[in-house]
Design a protein around this nucleic acid. Structure first.
Lengths: 348, 348
DNA sequence: CACAGCGATGTAAACCTTTTCCCGTTTCCA
DNA sequence: TGGAAACGGGAAAAGGTTTACATCGCTGTG
């Protein structure tokens, strides 16, 4: 077989292109009677091309409905214009909010967003991250639950890695973290100023770095806080209330707002009034937290800012230093002085 | 502000292959002393290869940390093992839930999920869809707001198109729709049975097909329903309450649960008790709807099922018929007989 | 014993685009 | 008018993988 450029295995130029194979740059080139190189120059822009030819090419491209094949572009450029985002739970409004923010930032710079939810499973998270790393220019891991060694592996496997709410000692990994240490101290100070002494903390997933940060914050706050295993979802909060009440607290600190909403719901069922019988606080300031009954006192940090900062870390010139984001205390109706002498107990 | 770092013109002359450029199939082939074809056969599986060679190849791949380049695979196979999902608002828990469902289904079949939020903007939605169509094997549009002609264009541009909560007369488009017509009738019947007569409906986005379905349902229900412009977000609901109250309704039907939560919040501020002063219902049964105060009466349809059905439509053998999904009325605390004679008015 | 059949492996084409390297033409200035 | 610079545009390589086809050695059967 002669090694010639006889590349034309009877390709129909126009009509039935819609169904099977899409139009390629060759189709455009043939129709415009130029080389494929010229088509590329016209469509990708920047390079000098005479206006007439450019018009002819554009017309031809329009006619056959040409759209560059992203796989081929990616192969050649070595960049897919895509980032990957891995979150523990896509259904959690907080993560949804972060995803929304980062996707908007990425889209603004012409990047796509590949997403994976991991159902809070560290193994699945690791697999998703490694798999996504093959595809994307940069990987964003939200509150990753996986072990540090695994995280390092992911760092090696990915072109660029940015963490949200987790830190890792590694030369090429950026991170944006909310200062939960500060947040928890703020919340504790607020509760202490109201006169609360018996406080229960509903723990998040044990593998969550951000949970450990909160716990450190408690120790720093110097308040005696009883810990009760809980989780990160609305259901977890709902389910953990009864256990928490056995400690006869005057205030409850939920791992996050999502949990707190579940807590409020269960307390209502039990006939326990918030904040008269019991104060409740959350963390994160989820969108719904201003609309619960009563409004949730919480520690607010802007997810918009979080997303923006994370996106900055993807820039090639970005430092790999960890960005700390401080929020602020938002006092709403769910906290008050402990009024009644006798603390409540579960109704069953 | 590194706003335009998107394309990276710094291309190294590929001298240093070990650190920067990832290992290719050639590296593996060389190390294992076989041809690249054999490597591919071993790693992709299916083809007959002698056990010894297979082991050698696997060892070599392991050693150099080889991972196939997805762009090259995509280019050749013509399939990216990726679907695209476009939703009007990533921050809306309902869409987040659907995204979660479909992403899980897709991941279960080895597919990735590319996502785009459109901020409820039909134009942006159209652009996102067209752009995503280039990349993905199939496109899922959630409650698309774009015009029918645009939708047809997207259908032409995409290999496979599936719609959620929208229909389109087009030969190759599948759809999964919630029977809002039925849902609204159920809600109306429920309210009517309680004795409500003055009902206000807080409209969704005017471009939403599903809003039109609801409106048709109202007409079928035969109840006089006053329409008030609102929207689809929590904030929209919060903001529309005052306007709605000028019509002195005994019951409020929100476009969806997200809106209803905003409504409840505003009513609380106004000192209007639900359901004593006013009944409120939503649509969708969002996760939080069981946990509001009072619990939200709503029309529930499983997002899990929605996701599953949508995924089925991506199967090559799937029919392009529209799948109708019926939900059921969920009665919670937010509805009751209208008790007081005098209807409430806004407090200001 | 010859040959069909098969299993294992190598070779190279094909996928589609971008970009580098060139060549031919025009323009401008000395 | 000659030469250089600028410019427009074509040919072809590169990018990594899969697969159709070719090759080669072996076994089993007529």
């Amino acid at each position: 077989m002669p090694r010639t450029w006889s590349n034309d295995p009877v390709r129909k130029p126009t009509s039935d292109r819609t169904s099977a194979g899409r139009a390629t740059i060759h189709d455009v080139a043939r129709l415009a009677e130029v080389s494929t190189a010229t088509v590329s120059r016209v469509l990708s822009g920047g390079k000098p091309v005479s206006p007439q030819v450019a018009d002819r090419v554009r017309a031809a491209a329009q006619e056959v409905g040409y759209r560059p094949n992203p796989a081929a572009q990616t192969l050649l450029r070595g960049s897919s214009q895509t980032i990957g985002v891995v979150v523990p739970d896509l259904g959690n409004p907080y993560f949804a909010e972060i995803l929304k923010g980062i996707a908007a930032e990425a889209a603004g710079d012409g990047h796509h967003t590949l997403v994976a939810g991991t159902e809070e499973d560290p193994e699945q998270e690791y697999r998703s991250a490694i798999e996504l790393a093959r595809w994307v220019d940069g990987l964003l891991l939200c509150a990753p639950r996986m072990s540090a060694p695994q995280l390092k592996e992911v760092a090696e496997a990915s072109r660029r890695l940015v963490l949200i709410n987790r830190v890792l000692r590694h030369p090429s990994v950026g991170a944006v973290v909310v200062d939960y240490h500060h947040g928890v101290r703020e919340l504790c100070a607020h509760l202490a100023s109201l006169g609360h002494e018996r406080i229960v903390y509903l723990e998040g997933p044990s593998t969550a770095w951000s949970d450990q940060q909160r716990q450190r914050g408690f120790r720093a706050a110097g308040l005696p806080v009883t810990r009760v295993a809980c989780g990160s979802s609305l259901r977890d909060g709902y389910a953990a209330v009864d256990e928490a009440l056995t400690h006869e607290p005057t205030a409850l600190i939920a791992f996050n707002d999502h949990v707190a909403v579940g807590v409020l719901s269960r307390l209502r069922e039990l006939g326990i009034t918030v904040p008269d019988d019991l104060s409740v606080v959350g963390v994160d300031d989820a969108p719904m937290s201003a609309h619960t009954d009563p409004g949730l006192t919480t520690y607010a940090v802007s997810t918009v800012e979080l997303g923006r900062q994370a996106w900055q870390h993807f820039s090639p010139t970005a430092s790999t230093a960890t960005t700390h984001l401080s929020g602020e205390l938002v006092v709403r109706g769910s906290t008050a002085r402990p009024r009644r002498r006798r603390t409540v107990k579960p109704s069953r």
